[in-house]
């Protein structure tokens, strides 16, 4: 039964997604999955419309980054190629926490990390100006606003937590976490 996850591994995975976890997902980040999860977030957090709207927005930005930039790709049933990654949404007493992870090209991720650093040192008004500056630059080939992470930080109102862990010669695992106050 080499091709089957053993029960202990499954239990570890389950325990890792502890009772704070509202939602965890690993796999392809295509349009269908994104809209299903976004709708789930909206209905699960409906008792707190403000936080719900923020978590919804943040999730969609981070998830779209995974579908565009993850270097692990999969083709969905409609023949579209999308990135793979992981999402964990947790609820704590006074905040929600949204974390995503995906494989990425290390050189490109170093640029992403620089952007995260810039985002975290800027005050809100400067961050808004930074967003406006990036938005006025030509769009990337994928039509991305090039401003997703800035928007995430503005929406969350808290600093980003991030890390890259080298995995292969060229690629690293990239994790970003953001906190949304209740």
């Amino acid at each position: 039964m080499q091709n089957m996850i053993n029960t202990q591994e499954l239990l570890d995975l389950y325990n890792l997604a502890n009772n704070k976890t509202l939602l965890s997902y690993t796999g392809i980040f295509d349009g269908q999955i994104l809209s299903v999860i976004a709708e789930n977030i909206e209905s699960n957090l409906a008792q707190n419309p403000n936080a719900s709207r923020k978590v919804f927005k943040i999730f969609l930005e981070l998830a779209q980054n995974i579908s565009f930039y993850s270097t692990e790709k999969q083709t969905n049933s409609k023949g579209k190629v999308n990135g793979m990654g992981i999402l964990i949404l947790q609820e704590f007493e006074d905040h929600y926490s949204c974390s995503t992870g995906n494989m990425g090209n290390t050189e490109m991720l170093k640029e992403v990390i620089k952007k995260c650093e810039t985002i975290n040192i800027l005050e809100r008004d400067d961050l808004r100006e930074y967003k406006r500056k990036l938005r006025s630059l030509p769009a990337s080939a994928k039509g991305g606003g090039n401003i997703g992470l800035v928007q995430v930080a503005l929406t969350s109102g808290n600093p980003l937590a991030y890390k890259i862990i080298p995995i292969t010669k060229t690629d690293s695992f990239y994790i970003v976490n953001t906190k949304i106050n209740k």
């Binding site: 927005k57 969609l60 769009a139 606003g145």
Partner: peptide, 12 residues
């Protein structure tokens, strides 16, 4: 009520 950042560029 919601638009993503790539939409935000088109609106601009």
């Amino acid at each position: 009520t919601y638009f993503n950042t790539s939409t935000s560029r088109c609106i601009l």
